[in-house]
Design a protein around this nucleic acid. Structure first.
Length: 333
DNA sequence: ACGGCATGTCCAA
DNA sequence: TGGACCTGCCGTG
């Protein structure tokens, strides 16, 4: 369920732990057997994210393009050097976790990040996979062998001497050349982390301002602006106090510029913390509370029927773009 | 055990 | 515009 921030974090993990390393590439599940054979034994030379797309470059200008879709996830294990620019994170990135040890996304309680069971301590031995279903001896639960057996439907496994990354459930996973990468990027709207310039912002503003469709749809349109998903859409609209039904044309360009700047801010927070914190103007105490508790992190997302945090009006839920849209009919108009 | 649901996207009608 | 698809979690029984 990754929006742009997760994908940038994943790209940084690859930059930190895979770029410059030769990799053994396999497809334990088999559905990427051909691609794996093409990439096997090559060295990873670059890793980058644009919106929700990630690109890994290998020798000879070959690129692996991955889009996680709704369910995709990367699992990292082994020795993992944390990116110095982001909060420590190993384990699963993308999907939420089921083991209580994952640091990336919203369902992960923040205290796990420094908890005794966390997987992230840099370079230290860490607990490998735990099979919850098997009643094996406590010893068997601590499996220090490397690499660990693939668990579940692993589409791609990338293995260095010390680190392994498993990909499951992606909506896209393919080998393309540099021109193919460029073609994908050309179709995407600006990503403020890739290009935070005013020019990039103006590209979003002019594209959106030309459209007769609702701003609630435009923010989800990856050709207009990239990286925003259903959570950030709802929250950005609330933060701008903007009615989701207003068409692009009728939204003042100053408001569109503010949305661009706000997305720049929220994306940076998301990449740093690994969580979709959209209430950033909080006291230190409230902020800590919000980080620890998912339900305290958002203004409107998943709060239908609850009183608006600002005006007390009931938050509404409706379908827009075949997705659930949450908004406050009083604040946003 | 089972069904609904999810932070996404594409395609056929 | 509705369904298909990718996978796993969480509530309900």
């Amino acid at each position: 369920m990754p929006e742009g921030h997760s994908v940038h974090r994943i790209a940084r993990q690859f930059a930190q732990n895979f770029v410059g390393h030769r990799v053994v590439v396999s497809s334990p599940q088999g559905r990427f057997a051909e691609g794996a054979a093409v990439l096997d034994g090559r060295t990873v030379t670059d890793a980058k994210a644009v919106g929700k797309q990630m690109f890994l470059e290998f020798d000879d200008g070959l690129w692996l393009r991955v889009h996680l879709g709704l369910y995709g996830a990367w699992d990292f294990a082994g020795e993992i050097r944390s990116d110095p620019t982001i909060a420590a994170s190993n384990g699963r990135m993308g999907q939420t976790n089921q083991r209580g040890t994952v640091l990336d996304d919203d369902d992960a309680p923040i205290h796990d990040a420094d908890g005794e069971n966390s997987l992230h301590s840099i370079g230290a031995p860490r607990r490998a996979r735990v099979r919850m279903s098997e009643q094996s001896s406590p010893l068997a639960e601590i499996d220090e062998r490397f690499p660990p057996e693939p668990v579940g439907q692993v589409r791609v496994r990338l293995l260095t001497e010390t680190t392994v990354a498993d990909l499951r459930g992606p909506t896209a996973c393919e080998v393309i050349d540099a021109a193919g990468v460029q073609a994908v990027i050309d179709r995407l709207g600006p990503d403020p982390l890739l290009d935070p310039s005013a020019e990039a912002g103006e590209r979003f503003v002019s594209r959106a301002h030309r459209k007769g469709s609702p701003i609630g749809l435009l923010l989800m349109d990856q050709q207009i602006i990239s990286g925003i998903g259903n959570v950030y859409r709802a929250e950005l609209l609330f933060r701008a106090r903007l009615d989701p039904h207003r068409t692009g044309k009728t939204v003042p360009v100053e408001t569109l510029r503010e949305i661009w700047l706000d997305w720049t801010r929220l994306l940076a927070i998301g990449v740093e913390t690994g969580q979709m914190m959209t209430m950033d103007d909080l006291s230190a105490a409230d902020y800590r509370l919000a980080m620890a508790n998912r339900s305290d992190r958002h203004w409107v997302y998943k709060r239908e029927g609850l009183p608006c945090r600002v005006c007390g009006t009931n938050i509404l839920l409706e379908e827009m773009g075949a997705r659930k849209l949450y908004w406050c009919p009083n604040c946003q108009r």
